[in-house]
Simulated scan of single mutants.
Amino acid sequence: MHELSPREGAHLLDLARGVMVTRSRDLDAFAYGDPRDVRIVEDGEGLAFMVGGMLPERRSPVSCTCGYLTLHNGVPIGYGDLILVGRSAAVAFNTFETYRGGEAAWNFARLLATVRHLYGARSFSLAPYQLGHRNAEAIASGAWWFYFKLGFRPLAAEPRRMLRQELARMKVDAGHRSDRATLRGLAAWHLFFDLDAPAGLPPVAELGARIAQGLAQRAGADRERALKTCNSEAMHLLGLRSLEGYTADERLAWSRWSPLVVTLRGLARWSAAEKRALVHVIRAKGGRREGDFVALFAAHPKLERALFGEGR
């Protein structure tokens, strides 16, 4: 893995934006990429991945979004993004049409290995669009079966039922191919690859409702006053007297996390060390590399359960 200077990072982000715009595509992780947070992972045999994080003001409070370019002998052959929450990674994988062929499965497998190496991910998911939901190109390419053959599986009951039917048909007729209607039905659900017991998707969307409810309880429609109240409460709960020494980006991260902190289940019973660890997690969200935040978040003994419940 090569750590790059901000100047080198800016050059690679320009490359990423260029290869996207010439194909009439766009990716927020490139458009708002942080040149300080760009790395190259060399995988051997000419394969490499350029992985970059986003500018602090564009980062989500809990999840971490990164963009990547797949490079072969220095030539961009594909791209995608990663959305990481703790040790879970939602993966989008795309190969430019010119370079589609026999190495796609290998490149995808090495991408997962890279994500595991960089971020410690142990659960990988693919969104329905990647599989063919409202995506005619993915349906035509048989994307769902491509990922199934690489070990990804549905967790929901309906696609598992459809899968059993298709496998039974293939057992009777080795030449059977799923029709488009079946592929669209299968693609309506996420696929998962887990190194541990399957956990499903982290319910990040539910956090927004909790934050909104907490803000409303504190100051009704006066959002600014509610945020100030949350900021004070969160500092008190975590034993912080001030944010002296924090950078502007770290202060921004704190302001976005404070409404979450005050909703954490059981926070009052945490030890002083666990509270200090949470402060480090929040501060890392405003740091140079958002990957540091991912690692600290995943390493915290209670944070993920406090956010999402005992099922995590």
Rank of each mutant, 00 (worst) to 15 (best):
T70E: 04
E166I: 03
L260N: 04
A113F: 12
F93W: 05
Q213K: 15
P128W: 09
H133I: 10
A143V: 08
H300R: 05
R169V: 14
G200H: 06
G220A: 10
L303T: 00
L183T: 04
A212T: 12
A306S: 10
L238K: 00
F30T: 02
S63T: 14
F30I: 06
S88D: 10
Y246R: 04
G52D: 03
R177L: 15
E310R: 14
M54A: 04
A143Q: 03
E310H: 13
R283E: 07
A121R: 02
F192K: 01
H11K: 12
A295C: 12
V19M: 07
D249L: 05
S123A: 13
D173I: 08
A157F: 10
G245K: 05
P202N: 05
D81T: 15
P35R: 04
L118D: 00
A138N: 02
A92V: 11
W189Q: 04
D34S: 09
F30V: 06
R218H: 09
G239S: 06
E166R: 07
T70H: 02
A16S: 07
R59Y: 05
L260G: 02
T263L: 11
R218E: 06
A205W: 14
S60K: 10
G309R: 08
A299Q: 09
S63A: 12
K171V: 13
A157T: 13
T229V: 13
R161C: 12
F93Y: 09
A216S: 15
A90S: 14
V51K: 00
R110P: 02
L227A: 05
A109T: 15
D179H: 10
G214D: 06
H72D: 11
G80Y: 00
L13R: 02
D81M: 11
R210Q: 12
R122P: 02
I77R: 01
A127M: 09
R269T: 12
R36P: 02
W189P: 01
E8Y: 09
Q130A: 07
L267C: 05
S255D: 10
A277T: 07
R87F: 07
H2G: 11
L278G: 01
H11D: 15
L183H: 01
G33N: 01
E166V: 08
Y246V: 03
D194A: 07
E103M: 12
T229D: 09
V91R: 00
F293S: 01
A234F: 02
A89W: 01
R36S: 09
K149W: 11
C230D: 01
V62K: 01
F293K: 00
Y79I: 07
S271I: 05
S5M: 14
W257R: 03
H11G: 12
Y79E: 04
